[in-house]
């Protein structure tokens, strides 16, 4: 059966002599792996369409339950070449790729994750990249159901005070109020400013994100918290975090 959809290349793995197994985040099928015949050869018809982050219109051939359908067509819609041309941006974009690979199950459509990735890649071609990366991580965790709880106490549900620093407990995936938290040394302190930004970001959209002004130190604080939270949820840090960007 021939299946057509749109996809973003997440990674490729060498298979055999000149073949690749390409992992896509697709619009209609979620994470989809496909076998591409001979793309490593110089005159391959796939050209550069299998490079990471390329948005393409693809066609795969195979039974609906086939583990590895064959990639028969890949036409570039948007190459996002500028993201690959910049070392730092690509290293950081690799974390987004890895989050998709680690959190999303194969062959389960996730339109929100695809749309978010497309919006993020378009935004990352220019502008305030630190803020876009942070926003993407937060939204992605929300889509997957792993958003850390910073608005209310994770145990009693009491609202947090936005004026004083709070303590985030990795094991709870949330902040805990003074009454519920017994031992503070296991917690990460979260400044009142970072907390306000986080709560505000839940109402933002990528289309209007440039209207907001956020200090770099607050972005760094929240980014570090999300990285720690992701490492806790996945039981190990993202491999791409060993790269310093």
């Amino acid at each position: 059966m021939l299946t057509r959809t749109e996809g973003i290349v997440l990674r490729t793995a060498v298979f055999g002599e000149a073949d690749l197994i390409v992992t896509y985040l697709t619009r209609d099928h979620g994470i989809l792996k496909a076998f591409a015949k001979s793309p490593r050869k110089i005159r391959s018809r796939f050209g550069s369409s299998l490079e990471p982050l390329t948005h393409s219109r693809i066609a795969v051939m195979g039974r609906e339950d086939a583990q590895l359908p064959r990639l028969t067509q890949s036409d570039i819609l948007r190459p996002f070449q500028t993201l690959r041309d910049d070392y730092t941006t690509f290293v950081r974009a690799s974390r987004l790729i890895e989050m998709n690979l680690r959190f999303l199950p194969e062959r389960e459509p996730n339109h929100d994750a695809f749309r978010l990735m497309m919006q993020a890649l378009a935004k990352l071609e220019s502008g305030r990249k630190n803020l876009y990366f942070l926003y993407y991580k937060m939204r992605f965790l929300q889509i997957c159901g792993y958003l850390p709880g910073l608005e209310i106490c994770g145990r009693c549900g009491r609202s947090s005070s936005e004026r004083s620093p709070q303590y985030f407990y990795l094991a709870h995936g949330s902040i805990l109020c003074e009454h519920c938290s017994a031992v503070r040394d296991e917690a990460r302190e979260l400044s009142a400013g970072a907390l306000r930004v986080f709560c505000g970001m839940l109402n933002w959209r990528f289309a209007t994100i440039d209207r907001f002004r956020v200090g770099d130190h607050l972005i760094a604080e929240l980014d570090s918290l999300l990285e720690a939270h992701i490492a806790y949820v996945l039981a190990r840090p993202l491999q791409s975090t060993v790269f310093t960007a």
Binding site: R11, F90, S94, E98, L101, Q239, S240, F243
Partner: peptide
Amino acid sequence: HVLLGALSPIDGIT
């Protein structure tokens, strides 16, 4: 000079 691979953040090749 052979590098014996290429950098890959996703695969953790540092």
